[in-house]
Design a protein around this nucleic acid. Structure first.
Lengths: 348, 348
DNA sequence: GGAGATCACGAAAACGTTTTCGTGTTAATA
DNA sequence: TATTAACACGAAAACGTTTTCGTGATCTCC
């Protein structure tokens, strides 16, 4: 087992000083051509690679970024993650992931662990519990410590930092409007408890579209399902007690389950009932019939988030160059039409 | 912006030495009760947290583990990842993820980057390209450098290390046998190019079941689809040119697509054709009809992989305690029955 | 009251780099 | 030939810890 070789070994072997080796490897003009070549040849021969940890300690920069997400087995988050990872890698950064499991405590613990030198900045989406508690002290502290933070998707106006979101309200309004345009009159909304920021905004957009079009909102058509979805919660009963001709769902699972119940009740899709779901994931694509979905372009979101973060991390190196103000990027959504709807062509 | 406080700051402030502070914080009996309490109070007040990087440099242990997977937007891999992450966190480790995108080069580059001090060991599944090239030098080098490695799912016998797999052959054989037991006589196999280790093994299991039961293998019933699945590849033509009454698919997507074609051709599922797919993911669960699937228990796989790795990492600390031999853990699969089959009760 | 033990603490090396600031040698210049 | 400049390199500090070892001061015991 050949141990890793260090500058010190090379120096001793070649009978020069550590500083000379270090400079020679960086091609410093301070070192003679002869010595440089000798050192570089030796280094290559023994496959010398500098120790990342030592460099991090010296530079106070790790080239690691911390990503904290509520769940990893979740199509949207993994999509964002892929965007982050690709962009970060291209700029020479590695990604450390922690999963909060929607728990406030795990979020705090994980962040504190990483904040002590392991990373140069954070990218995260708030856990459900954090949004419920509205406790953001751990995030505010980052600011005081000078650790950059980018929030995506699940954000809060309580903390000042860069953000990347979609315009949930506009997206929901657009989708609802498209259903209205296609002739639907009674549109239901399947959503979650409203402490989730995104759900609240989507509901607002849904309401707005109905009001603007003069159809008005019937609160009986809005049903709120628990965040941790249980199969029985969404039952056929609702389909039989209420009349509606379209459904907007704040996520894929709700939509898929709802479609299945409709099929069991022999309702025609999209004729009798149309369905649109948020988040264009695997389920939407492979459902039968295919589910019309609002694509959030997670990969693009991740790319932008990583770019904002790394830019800020690297700007901080230039001491006292004043930092740009915090930005909020809005990633445009798009509506992917499939068989669960029969929409008129878009006006745009 | 209050900068992070260090041992040196505390020492200066309290007019003691750095060593005293360090020991006091660790409750060393060498330090008087008075001094300990004074130091600890001060540290708490200023929220002192030791710098991870400095500790890593000192201990030559980072408490990070590197995970390299071919794709993150992939249900099975994220499931494994969740198992790794949870277990690692419980033991005080963080996880750095890199995605190889099924590319040999990215796999090598990412590993080299992390191997220079950033991590204590690797957990990985081979990229498709690596399996195709059969080039494992980057993995063998890890061994020489004394960096522990655990391979899962996509493994190779070429490198000596701990491994976690499912018994793909036995699983495929079991599933095929169950189809036979339920009265099916002509069972098709939808698989990928065979350079993927797992596909090859699953095919072997399929063949074995058919041969043992005396049905024999009809090579016309085996179709090989490209790994990067294109919609058109799997067409109705096959359904019309061949007669078969069941299909075993090496992944979910193939199965879902196949079911859909069968439905379009008005074939009754499971009456006329039954379907079983490998990997029990979201699609299997939410398909209509639900897809009977072979569950690989990714989370358990991840847990075991992380345990093997961390055990080995920590054993290496005890110098010259001889290391245990490499182990291969086989995670049992289970068959999740849904509506795409009508199986007789299992014999076990 | 002196020998040895115990106590409480500090100095310094070490981990592997980078970087600043010498310094001795050689070459160019007046 | 004396002065300076350029050159090529080394010593040492620094990043923030941990840990070994040394050392004064106090205490115990005969």
């Amino acid at each position: 087992m050949k141990r890793k070789i260090t500058l010190k070994h090379i120096a001793r072997e070649l009978d020069v000083s550590i500083s000379t080796v270090s400079k020679a490897l960086k091609n410093s003009p301070e070192i003679s051509k002869d010595t440089r070549e000798k050192v570089q040849a030796f280094a290559r021969l023994y496959n010398y690679k500098p120790n990342n940890i030592a460099i991090s300690l010296k530079n106070k920069r790790t080239r690691n970024i911390g990503v904290i997400i509520p769940d990893i087995v979740h199509h949207f988050f993994t999509t964002v993650f892929r965007g982050i990872e690709h962009y970060a890698n291209d700029r020479g950064y590695n990604v450390i992931v922690c999963v909060s499991d929607e728990s406030f405590d795990k979020e705090v613990v994980n962040m504190e662990l990483l904040a002590n030198g392991s990373i140069d900045g954070f990218i995260m989406a708030l856990s459900a519990e954090t949004q419920q508690k509205q406790d953001f002290n751990h995030l505010k502290e980052l600011g005081e410590q000078g650790i950059p933070l980018v929030l995506f998707d699940r954000v809060t106006s309580e903390v000042a930092c860069d953000k990347v979101i979609i315009d949930d309200q506009a997206a929901a309004q657009m989708a609802t409007q498209r259903l209205i345009d296609s002739g639907k009159k009674r549109i239901a909304l399947f959503t979650t408890e409203s402490f989730l920021n995104v759900s609240a905004k989507r509901e607002a957009g849904y309401r707005r579209a109905l009001e603007k079009s003069g159809l008005g909102v019937d609160d009986n058509l809005i049903i709120r399902l628990p965040h941790q979805f249980e199969e029985e919660t969404l039952s056929a009963a609702f389909f039989e007690s209420q009349e509606f001709d379209a459904v907007l769902c704040v996520n894929e699972i709700f939509a898929i389950r709802a479609m299945r119940i409709a099929q069991e009740l022999q309702r025609d899709i999209p004729g009798e009932i149309s369905f649109i779901g948020f988040t264009d994931g695997l389920l939407s694509k492979y459902a039968n019939p295919g589910l019309t979905a609002i694509a959030q372009h997670g990969e693009e979101m991740g790319r932008v988030a990583a770019e904002l973060l790394i830019d800020r991390v690297e700007e901080e190196d230039d001491l006292e160059q004043e930092l740009p103000p915090y930005r909020t990027c809005i990633i445009p959504v798009s509506l992917i039409e499939r068989e669960s709807t029969q929409l008129a062509p878009s006006k745009n």
